[in-house]
């Protein structure tokens, strides 16, 4: 279905792409945020993914958008974090899912913290900040590749033994 070398190179090239790199010292830009808050947010996002039966890839895309958005902005207030998180998940669902949940469903799980209107506005702010770079190679897609390579390696070893 595809040339393995081409796909491998594509994955590697995308990994070193400047614009999709994440900032290792992210929190220096946001004095109001602590790493713990990001962890709590991501845990909540994974719960939302569970509720709406979203793909694992969707979660990793959302995480990538969140980290890159924080890497391109400054002084994000604590109260905005959930809105940013749920909007990242909305974008990720639109990119990855066959049937993305409705905006109202995303608003519902925030229990009143974010309105549909807020989410729709934040969605555009995020895609614009990310310069529309929404197709990225996530840790999850690398894992899929490794599992396949592992499987192929085993299959080859077994053939050699037999």
């Amino acid at each position: 279905w595809t040339d393995e070398v081409v796909l491998w190179n594509h994955f590697c090239n995308k990994d070193i792409e400047d614009e999709t790199k994440r900032d290792p010292v992210l929190f220096l830009r946001h004095p109001n945020l602590q790493p713990r808050m990001r962890a709590v947010l991501l845990e909540w996002i994974i719960e939302v993914c569970d509720v709406y039966k979203l793909h694992r890839e969707t979660y990793y895309l959302a995480m990538d958008y969140l980290d890159r958005y924080l890497g391109l902005t400054r002084n994000v207030p604590k109260v905005q974090l959930q809105l940013i998180g749920i909007s990242c998940l909305l974008i990720a669902s639109k990119v990855e899912e066959i049937y993305p949940p409705k905006v109202s469903e995303f608003a519902y799980v925030t229990d009143g913290a974010c309105s549909e209107d807020d989410i729709i506005k934040m969605e555009l702010i995020i895609v614009k900040t990310l310069n529309w770079k929404c197709t990225v190679i996530t840790a999850n897609s690398w894992l899929c590749i490794y599992i396949q390579l592992c499987y192929l390696g085993n299959a080859r070893n077994n053939m050699e033994l037999a």
Binding site: K94, P100, V103, E116, I120, V127, K133
Partner: peptide, 21 residues
């Protein structure tokens, strides 16, 4: 059009992010 209650259409997000590459 963005009057859409679902925000940016997924086709637009996919189209732009892929075309940029």
């Amino acid at each position: 059009r963005l009057e859409h209650e679902e925000g940016a259409p997924c086709t637009a997000i996919r189209e732009v992010s892929l075309l940029k590459e």
